[in-house]
Design a protein around this nucleic acid. Structure first.
Lengths: 216, 216
DNA sequence: TAGATTGTTAATCGATTAACAATC
DNA sequence: TAGATTGTTAATCGATTAACAATC
């Protein structure tokens, strides 16, 4: 029973819970208490219980949580139990790497099609999927009805691409381009991935280590 | 003048400020007020001023902020103005994609070496850099003194790799592996990139759209 | 039952926003 | 100078932690 407004902070912790529970399952651990899990994950037991209780009482007093069951519940909350079709736009270095590296099936997604605007790319196969020319997008989407798109294209022309995809019924974007989708399309679901942001955060932290406190 | 403890939330916004200021610079915009910037970035002017004032008074009353100057200050805060050597470990799909896709030079980093434990990979060139066998790590690090490592290896064996790299003076890891570095090495700087976490967050948000409120 | 651990309410802490005096 | 906009303090809001009664 999902309460209406779950905070973003909670949602962003769910995939991590899911991963840790997966690890426990691999070790054949059947039950875990919030305290044990909190020690593994380096957060408080309180937070775990609060987080989980946003969605329902998945535990049992005096016992803890059933690992397999809890994992399944989180999968359901995240929508991993319903297969979703995804298309990927832009088969450059990044697009190809994501295709090969991200295990879509593992999380219940299906990478249904890869598109590129370069004719030279057409019919090249990546991870068993043939690249299609973008002029086949409409035909494909009307038939396959993908719900999400991975955007691996340059900023230029990205707006037009998103507009087109929205018309074809896609309203969720995993955005690796540096184009700010929500600025033009505020109602669409976007998850931005700015790899270099993360690198810069690291370099800030590392910098601190080597400098005396009080430096500018 | 950096106050001692800047919160993580502030730090994580800096790269985004940096990007937006870059955009303004490309458009030859010389000055911007916190209000104007806040409208572009969809956050409050208050927050921008608070964030920046953690590091110093970069603005001028009645005028606003000089774009070029502010961008330079943020680059300095993030450590982008000091060239840092980075090595990348693991030249599989992901490692190669990061090598080709991430513009290290643009942010003042130098990708100084790529290492892989497979002999078959040795001397293959990616983006102009020859892959070295991991047995050359020690020799290389003693000579080049890289400060950060990009980890693109499987979980298995990751602990040993990190341990070795630490001994060779590396204390910052851009971690694409699913190995939890800080669990074993709490003092090392780590920036974890879990691409699929971000995808799951998106699928949660997208799911909400298609379901009636109050559903489980 | 007694012990353990949850679910949940209350207290605390931190981050964001609002307000305004300082000042260019 | 008058107008604009910062830097900074105070108020608000939300998220995390602590506490404990409910209950397995």
């Amino acid at each position: 029973m999902q309460k209406n407004n779950i905070s973003n902070s909670v949602i962003r912790r769910l995939p991590r819970y899911y991963r840790f529970l997966g690890g426990l399952q691999r070790q054949n651990i059947a039950k875990i208490s919030s305290r044990e899990l909190s020690e593994m994950m380096r957060l408080t037991a309180s937070q775990i219980r609060q987080d989980l209780n946003c969605f329902g009482g998945f535990g049992q007093q005096g016992y803890g949580y059933n690992v397999a069951e809890l994992r399944k519940e989180i999968a359901h909350i995240l929508g991993l139990d319903v297969s979703q079709k995804i298309i990927l736009i832009g088969a450059g270095n990044l697009g190809r790497a994501i295709t090969m590296h991200v295990d879509f099936e593992k999380y219940g997604y299906e990478l249904a099609g890869i598109f590129d605007s370069s004719i030279a790319m057409e019919n090249i196969e990546i991870a068993g999927i043939k690249i299609m020319h973008t002029n086949r997008l409409e035909e494909f989407c009307k038939k396959e009805k993908p719900s999400m798109a991975v955007l691996c294209i340059p900023r230029t022309g990205a707006k037009e691409t998103v507009e087109k995809l929205m018309e074809l019924g896609i309203n969720a974007f995993w955005n690796f381009s540096h184009y700010d989708i929500n600025y033009d399309f505020p109602d669409v679901h976007v998850e931005n991935v700015h790899l270099t942001d993360s690198l810069m955060t690291l370099s800030y932290a590392a910098k601190g280590t080597n400098e005396p406190i009080g430096e500018e």
